[in-house]
Simulated scan of single mutants.
Amino acid sequence: MKLNVINGMYIYGASGHAKVVISGVESQGIGIVKVFDDNPECTSCLGYSVSFWDAGEYEEGGLMVIAIGENGIRKRVVERLGAKITYGKVFHDKSIISKYVKLGEGTVVMAGAIIQPEVRVGDHVIINTGAAVDHDCKIEDFVHIAPSATLCGNVHVGKGSLIGAGSVVIPGISIGENCVIGAGATVLRNVSDGETVYGVVK
């Protein structure tokens, strides 16, 4: 799968997560137009100059990705920037994405991630390094699937939830909105909205 970008991408965020997003863009031979951040003391990221956000430096129609790992902050930035921003998608050249997958705007897929057929991914989702998403999963907006997490087949993840690093969700499970699945957890039951769970969840 290739990025459909002509003039490069805009990146909003200049933290460690942004470095991984930028690496994904570069892996496909695409340039970075501008990197923005809300911290005026942040001036450089991977050699790119970082600017405090100024709408005048964004060319209307240019593709942007919000490179912020925390779901709530990412959502607030999208809401603050408003409808004039056009969002792109980033998938690292070393990710594996079935042609039968649907990815929403602003979504990023990192190196080593695998997404299998008939998966539906919402807007501004992170499928992080080495994560595996098997067939027929549905991932809603502003979700973060952390490094090496595994969603087995037909899993549903609600808006704003975090699936922690190295966790495993067995087939057919439903995870509600704004949930936290702790790192290394094994999820054997449905998880209700707002729950935080760790360990073997049964």
Rank of each mutant, 00 (worst) to 15 (best):
M1H: 03
G8L: 01
G13Y: 07
G13W: 06
S15K: 04
G16D: 02
H17P: 00
H17T: 00
A18H: 05
K19Y: 11
V20H: 01
V21S: 04
V21H: 02
S23T: 04
E26I: 12
G29A: 15
G31N: 14
G31T: 15
V33S: 14
K34A: 06
V35P: 00
S44N: 14
V50G: 15
F52A: 14
D54P: 02
D54V: 04
A55C: 11
E57I: 01
Y58Q: 05
L63H: 04
M64H: 04
M64W: 01
V65M: 06
G72H: 12
R74Q: 10
V78S: 03
E79P: 08
E79I: 07
R80H: 11
A83Q: 08
I85R: 03
Y87P: 02
G88W: 07
F91Y: 15
H92Q: 10
D93Q: 14
K94Y: 14
I97Y: 08
K99D: 10
L103A: 09
V109Q: 02
I114K: 05
Q116G: 09
V119D: 01
V119H: 00
V119Y: 00
V119F: 01
G122Y: 01
H124Q: 06
I127V: 13
G130C: 06
G130L: 08
A131I: 11
A131F: 10
V133I: 08
D134H: 08
D136A: 09
E140M: 10
D141M: 04
F142E: 03
V143C: 13
A146R: 05
P147H: 10
A149P: 13
A149L: 11
G153Q: 03
G153C: 03
N154M: 14
N154I: 02
V155T: 09
H156G: 07
K159A: 09
A165K: 03
S174T: 13
G176C: 05
N178E: 15
C179L: 01
C179Q: 00
V180Q: 14
A183Y: 03
V187Y: 05
L188P: 03
L188C: 10
S192H: 11
D193W: 05
G194T: 14
V200D: 09
K202R: 13
